[in-house]
Each structure stands twice: as structure tokens, then as C-alpha cells.
């Protein structure tokens, strides 16, 4: 039994402690935002935050995560009340197929939570581990810049309730 704190909620999961977090999120907890891409920590589709830092959930066994705060894209806001990162991605229509987007948002969230006043070069460098195959890179960059503006204003909304 491993105790996990995900989006502020406690879970006791029965999966083997060696199990990668991604499988637990998707198969046991029905948190399907994080996606399986490569399974090797090379594409970023599975990115979530652990204690505010972006990690690849596909290569992170849950035994590492007891006592730590896991945040998934579901923790950034809800359908009815999306957080600033989600609002920015919607406003910029940054998704085409959308498979990479949850991971993109989580890595960008980790970046901006640490420092919302980032440069364009910082954003590009930070998002380097995350791949998008449709080619909406420019929209993704615009969305992250928009989210940075939102997060620097009082408009931060409900986004960081779990951090």
C-alpha cells in the first residue's frame, strides 16, 4: 500500500511500489490527463508536477512519492473553472490533436510557478523535453506567454490551490 497525495487528495493505492506513477494515475485513479507517449521519459506527454517540479510520470515509480505533493493537469482547474494555464491554452487554441498538451501545461506550470517573469528563451529552454508532433509550437509558446501574464496579475484564479 502506497499513500499518495494527488491534487491535494490522499489516495491509498494497491499497485506495486515499483509501478510508474502514470499507470496509477490513469488505471487506478481515472486521472487521464497525463498521457502515455514513449514510456522512456523522452517525449513529455506524461509530465506532472511533484513538489512543484516537472517530472516524467512514466518513469517515476510511486515508491518515490510518499509524502510528496503530486499535481496533474486536473489539479490546475476544472472544466467549469479552468486555471490560468488552461485558460491561456484555450484562448490561444494551442492544441491540435492535444496529446502533448497536458504535459506541456504541466511543465510550463512548473516553470511559471517558480518565476512567472520568464523570458521567451527561458520558456523555449524549459519546454525542450516536451515534444509536439502536430506542430502547434508557436501557439504553445503564445499560450505560455499568456499564462505568464495571467499569473502575474490578480487574475490567477483558482489555479494554484494545490501548490
Amino acid at each position: 500500500m502506497v499513500k499518495l497525495t494527488i491534487n491535494g487528495q490522499q489516495h491509498e493505492v494497491t499497485a506495486d511500489p515499483d509501478t510508474p506513477l502514470l499507470y496509477v494515475l490513469r488505471d487506478e485513479l481515472a486521472l487521464n490527463g497525463a498521457k502515455f507517449g514513449c514510456g522512456l521519459g523522452q517525449c513529455g506527454a506524461c509530465t506532472v508536477m511533484v513538489d512543484g517540479k516537472a517530472v516524467f510520470s512514466c518513469v517515476t515509480p510511486i515508491l518515490l512519492l510518499e509524502g510528496r505533493q503530486v499535481t496533474t493537469v486536473e489539479g490546475l482547474g476544472t472544466h467549469d473553472n479552468p486555471g490560468p494555464m488552461q485558460r491561456a491554452f484555450i484562448a490561444e487554441q494551442a492544441a491540435q490533436c492535444g496529446y502533448c498538451i497536458a504535459g506541456m501545461m504541466m511543465r510550463a506550470q512548473a516553470l511559471l510557478q517558480d518565476n512567472p517573469a520568464v523570458s521567451d528563451a527561458d520558456i523555449r529552454a524549459a519546454l525542450q523535453p516536451n515534444l509536439c508532433r502536430c506542430g502547434t509550437h508557436m501557439r504553445i509558446l503564445r499560450a505560455v506567454r499568456r499564462a505568464a501574464r495571467l499569473m502575474q496579475t490578480a487574475d490567477a484564479g483558482s489555479a494554484s490551490k494545490n501548490q
Binding site: G41, Q42, V55, P129
Partner: peptide, 23 residues
Amino acid sequence: AGLPAAPGGEPSPMMPGFSGALS
């Protein structure tokens, strides 16, 4: 930090970084 991929999509050895995952 892992072994970040070679630039330009060239095949290269790889390893994901575990910064953030490991305390």
C-alpha cells in the same frame, strides 16, 4: 539532468533526468 537528446533529431544515447522525481 539525464542525457538530453542530441540536437537536430540525430539518434543519440538517452536517459531521462530524475531531477524533481528523486528527493
